[in-house]
Design a binder for these strands. Structure first.
Length: 488
RNA sequence: CGGGAUGUGGCGCAGCCCGGUAGCGCACACGCCUGGGGGGCGUGGGGUCGCAGGUUCAAAUCCUGUCAUCCCGACCA
């Protein structure tokens, strides 16, 4: 046994790290808090990117690219924004090294100090809005619908592969609108795009909602979020879409002329998802045998394994099946490496989360059969050679649905309505997951609950119905339940 | 950023307490035998012991500093 994964039940954190490393997704780099995304992990990210990019373009957005560096003064222009990010900025202060006068090696050349420090972007609102000022003059220039794929840096104290790294990859959409309502519509549209992507492609059910003022993005008037539940009962904020009001327009003096020749500030949104989605994907579906990937994002959807080893007859059958599957747009790998034995390949592909395996062996072949194995349920059965291609094509859809359903059922079973403080604490400790409870609407109570239990308000669900009740902590009146959970 | 632990061939570890020629498993190379769930036997190659100083005749081992990782806590729009 070359590669063993720590069971989830034994140590969830270790299990997660084992999967990331042993499935070949990513590893720690020599740089604090930064990871190397390996080819297999990056292939999954690329599939996510491709689909999201398509969805952004279908909703009228175009891509552009803004600088990695932001002058320090830009960041300070929006008061709440800078307050939110000030403690986690990487700052460039010099632009040159020189030979160390005291010996070997290089030191920063003190003569090369920058007049104004540059901040490595933690997010790009400021540099982008500074640019938009020159791009927007008239209502005819609006709406401006731009996205960028980029890396950002947030100097977090404690990092974790994919979930929270110092540098991470993401996309950030930044849009400008003539009216408040149009900007709000955009904000909602994009949270819906995210929800659709995460549910349909990643197979992870999400709750759409708005953040409380306390949990809002720094500089936003409203933050919409999608919240997913992981297998350890903790919530993961998986994407956010912000209605920025006129905050950045005012900070950067971005005005436009209306049809009536009146000068107005523009309305803004920003929205983003990051490589953290990889973390969600891993944590939501995988098991003690390794990664479980939804077919729609799996770099290899079907692997064909010759049993016990490739030969002319098996090769011919494998190539025929592979060709037919590929013709249907399915990615297939024929693992004809003669040096590795079937058992090794089985374990390896299970570790990597390949959704379907077709085993072709001489014994089965005599009977006109092949072996089908699904990664999600670990089921194994024989299928006629003649129907194998059609069967596997359908099976991929079934697996996609099943993975989602499994995650959905888990979330359903781990979402609890609670009406007393005792139950709140008990459910949080013993069961975890989402807790639907009444809250009196004050930040004070929210913080108190966090202090007492570490649970935070994940969101106020968009589809939550009004209902008279009492705050679970203070007993004060409330007209809506909110979702609490411990979160990543 | 505080408390604890760890860092030794590519990976996982032993050796450290009590200083004295760096070891094991996996992986790798070659050969033979095997072959329906991580094969067997044999031979072989590969290590500045995280890094920088210090103590010593002698440091993986003792001391100081530093970097990184893991766990707990604080922090985390």
């Amino acid at each position: 046994m070359a590669k063993e994964i720590t069971p989830r039940s034994e140590d969830y954190s270790k299990w997660y790290n084992d999967i990331v490393k042993k499935a070949g997704l990513a590893e720690h780099s020599a740089v604090r808090g930064c990871m190397v995304i390996k080819p297999y992990g990056f292939a999954i990210w690329e599939k996510m990117q491709a689909q999201l990019d398509k969805m952004f373009k279908e909703t009228g957005h175009v891509n552009a690219y803004f600088p990695l560096f932001i002058p320090k003064s830009f960041l300070s222009k929006e008061a709440e924004h800078v307050e939110g990010f000030a403690t986690e900025c990487a700052v460039v202060t010099h632009h040159r090294l020189m030979a160390d006068p005291n010996g070997g090696g290089m030191v920063v050349d003190p003569a090369a100090k920058l007049e104004e420090e540059l901040v490595v972007r933690p997010t790009s609102e400021t540099i982008i809005w500074n640019t938009y000022r020159d791009w927007i003059n008239s209502y005819r220039d609006l709406p401006l619908l731009i996205n960028q794929w980029a890396n950002v840096v947030r100097w977090e104290l404690r990092t974790r592969l994919f979930m929270r790294t110092t540098e991470f990859l993401w996309q950030e959409g930044h849009t400008a609108h003539a009216t408040r309502q149009e900007a709000i519509d955009e904000t909602v549209q994009m949270i819906n795009v995210y929800a659709q992507f995460v549910e349909e492609f990643m197979g992870v059910p999400v709750i759409k909602g708005v953040k409380t003022p306390n949990e809002r993005f720094a500089g936003a008037d409203d933050t919409y979020t999608i919240e997913a539940l992981m297998q350890d009962g903790k919530a993961l904020q998986s994407g956010t879409s912000h209605f920025l009001g006129q905050n950045f327009a005012k900070a950067f003096e971005v005005k436009y002329l209306t049809k009536e020749n009146k000068e107005e500030y523009v309305w803004a949104t920003s929205w983003g998802v990051s490589t953290r989605l990889m973390g969600a994907l891993i944590m939501a579906h995988s098991d003690d045998d390794g990664l479980v990937l939804p077919p729609k994002l799996a770099p290899i959807q079907v692997v064909i394994v010759p049993i016990p080893k490739p030969n002319e007859e098996i090769d011919a059958v494998a190539e025929k099946i592979a060709t037919e599957l590929r013709a249907k747009g399915i990615s297939v790998k024929y693992d004809n490496d003669a040096r590795k034995r079937p058992g090794f390949k089985f374990a390896e592909h299970e570790m990597k989360g390949v959704p379907v395996r077709i085993g072709i062996g001489k014994r089965d072949l005599e009977k006109g059969l092949v072996e089908i194995a699904r990664r999600d349920t670990k089921e194994k059965y024989s299928e006629s050679l003649d129907t194998a291609v059609a069967h596997v094509t359908e099976l991929l859809d079934h697996i996609q649905d099943n993975i989602y359903k499994k995650a959905f059922d888990y979330r359903k079973a781990h979402t609890t309505r609670v009406d007393t403080w005792e139950d709140f604490q008990k459910v949080l400790e013993e069961k975890g997951g989402f807790i639907s409870a009444h809250w009196d609407g004050t930040t004070e109570t929210e913080l108190k609950i966090k202090e007492l239990t570490k649970a935070t308000i994940r969101c106020i669900a968009l589809d939550e119905k009004e209902e008279a009740g009492k705050c679970v902590l203070t007993g004060k009146p409330s007209n809506k339940r909110v979702l609490f959970a411990k979160a990543y």
